[in-house]
Computed example of a mutant assay.
Amino acid sequence: MKAVVLITEGVWEAAVDAARDAVPADASIELLHVDTGDAEHVLEGAFSGLMGRGRRSGAPTALAQDLDQATAQLLDAAAQRLGRPCEKRALKGRPERVAVAAVEGADLLVMSRDGDFSRLGPKSIGHISRFIIDHVPCQLLLVWPGSVPPVSSIPPPPPPGHKPPHEHH
């Protein structure tokens, strides 16, 4: 069995804990982090156009190195928390698409919710996670970071006769 744990800033601990507790000891585990690379592009744009002074030598490269180092530290922290042998992989690109492609051939993806944790419902899942959930080509273990909100947090149903906006004529 191969399990992939999606390491997402702010909620990764819950995914790692779930993998540690739920994935069999003889399974292989890969910790996966996907970076958009947006920060590097924003900085390059600022130096090349917005500031009007051309490219500042080394700044985007230094930022890329800092981001890569931060990612490596995050993956190291996740591996330490997991407490068992694992592979670590850092990729760049559109997180939802890169993550789905990266789990091809895996048996299980473990990931945390990344939205509004104050109540149950669809807003507890962000748009990137929603894409992954809808397209992942393997089994999925989706966990709550922190405590699970009570069932009473589900919003009340719409009043009788209410039509969703897309059904109005």
Rank of each mutant, 00 (worst) to 15 (best):
G58L: 05
L74I: 10
A70Y: 01
A70P: 02
R94Q: 09
C86L: 00
V42Q: 03
E40Y: 05
L43F: 05
H33S: 10
L67N: 03
Q80L: 09
A77R: 14
H33Y: 12
L50C: 06
T61N: 00
H33D: 01
K92G: 02
R55A: 14
L32M: 07
S28G: 13
S57A: 15
D66N: 10
G54Y: 07
V34W: 04
A77D: 10
P85L: 10
L75V: 13
V34K: 13
A64W: 05
E87P: 02
P60W: 00
P85S: 12
D66Q: 13
D68V: 14
L31W: 04
C86S: 11
D35Y: 04
H41S: 10
G45C: 09
L43W: 05
Q73N: 11
A78F: 05
H33N: 11
G83N: 05
R53F: 14
R81H: 11
K92E: 03
K92A: 04
E30W: 07
S48W: 10
Q73I: 01
E87M: 08
H41Q: 11
A72C: 06
A70V: 09
L31D: 01
D68E: 15
G37C: 07
P60D: 00
R89S: 07
G83V: 01
G37H: 03
A59D: 13
G93F: 02
S48A: 15
L82E: 02
A78K: 05
E87F: 08
H33L: 11
Q65G: 07
A62V: 11
L74A: 07
L50I: 13
D76R: 04
G49R: 12
V42W: 11
D35S: 12
G83Y: 06
K88C: 08
T61E: 15
E40G: 04
A72H: 07
A70W: 03
Q65T: 12
V42C: 00
D66M: 05
Q80Y: 08
V42K: 04
R56F: 15
L50D: 07
D66I: 11
Q65R: 10
A78M: 02
E44I: 10
K88W: 00
P60G: 03
